[in-house]
């Protein structure tokens, strides 16, 4: 594999992944609303409306249309724009995409990617600020990824597009301007189903979900300055979850703090907690801690909204509770 890399933002990584895969495989098409001004716009330099389909506002059906195209020889990417809109498409995603292979005993294949971007902490109020990853974890037949770095974003999106199963890709708009070195190899992939240890440590395992990563890293650096060596495990794939990496880390550190910006009840953190409690119980020397967004509708006013999401302070406080 080539070791060439260049600096790329998270947002550009999304565009580049799509461009490369569309060049590589003519069956890949992009379906979404206003793609000519949002993330898809640079693609119009290379492709035309045959493969870049700007759709009317009709989420359930254009998601289903993508599925129908996937059933019949194409490999669509369906962009649902803001993550709060995935509920409109939920019936087609859940009752069709996730189930058609199984229900037909393997006759049908659904090689489709659904992308949705979480917008939050920007005073967009309750109907635009959801982080819906947990809902879909309860649906067998879907793969779900939530990358938090430009490198992982590019590699996972490419892997999702090449995957023959339906994959939900949750992006985070708060990470759009993050920059990092990303390999230029057009076959660079990050495997679906593998978590990533971003920082090694031995005192506590910090499991980071989706866009929490920058704050988790910040907390880890702060803790290290205070003599606490935290290990940061970036989950990256929510389904299928990399239980092995999680359990290996907890076996080493004996303490787990899970940071997830979805709402507390039924969060990704809840499932991670259950896995660790069930399969790693004897490694633990303290209760598992979840640092999540509380169970409240997201308010508009920044005075109310800003304190809600996991912060470095809350992460450090959770660590202190278990040490």
């Amino acid at each position: 594999m080539s070791s060439q890399a260049r600096e790329l933002t998270y947002l550009k990584a999304i565009v580049e992944a799509q461009r490369e895969e569309m060049l590589r495989d003519e069956r890949v098409i992009l379906i979404g609303e206003n793609i000519d001004i949002y993330g898809g716009s640079p693609l119009f330099d290379t492709f035309d409306e045959k493969r870049l389909r700007n759709v009317p506002i009709s989420e359930n059906s254009f998601a289903g249309m993508g599925i129908g195209a996937a059933l019949t020889g194409l490999r669509p990417i369906v962009d649902l724009t803001i993550a709060s809109f995935v509920y409109l498409a939920a019936d087609q995603i859940i009752n069709q995409a996730a189930k058609l292979r199984y229900m037909t005993g393997g006759q049908l294949s659904v090689p489709i990617v659904f992308r949705a971007c979480t917008y939050y902490n920007i005073c967009n109020a309750a109907q635009h600020s959801d982080r819906p990853y947990p809902f879909f974890m309860n649906v067998p037949g879907l793969k779900i990824v939530a990358p938090a770095t430009p490198r992982d974003m590019k590699g996972l999106l490419k892997a999702a597009i090449r995957d023959d199963d339906p994959v939900l890709v949750f992006e985070d708009m708060n990470l759009w301007t993050q920059k990092a070195e990303v390999p230029t190899d057009p076959d660079f992939l990050v495997p679906i189903g593998k978590a990533d240890v971003k920082i090694e440590g031995s005192d506590v395992t910090l499991v980071s979900i989706a866009g929490c990563l920058p704050r988790v890293m910040g907390a880890a650096h702060g803790l290290r300055a205070g003599g606490i060596a935290a290990e940061v495990v970036d989950l990256r794939t929510l389904v299928p979850m990399d239980r092995q990496t999680l359990l290996e880390s907890v076996a080493k550190t004996h303490r787990a703090v899970i940071i997830d910006n979805s709402h507390r009840t039924g969060s990704v953190a809840s499932e991670v907690s259950a896995v660790i409690a069930e399969e790693g119980f004897h490694s633990l020397r303290a209760p598992i801690q979840r640092v999540t967004t509380p169970d409240v509708q997201i308010p508009y006013s920044a005075a109310l909204e800003k304190p809600l999401y996991p912060s470095e302070e809350r992460i450090v406080a959770a660590v202190k509770r278990v040490l």
Partner: peptide, 8 residues
């Protein structure tokens, strides 16, 4: 929608 997608 699936049939529509097949058309696409």
């Amino acid at each position: 929608p699936l049939a529509t997608g097949a058309g696409l």
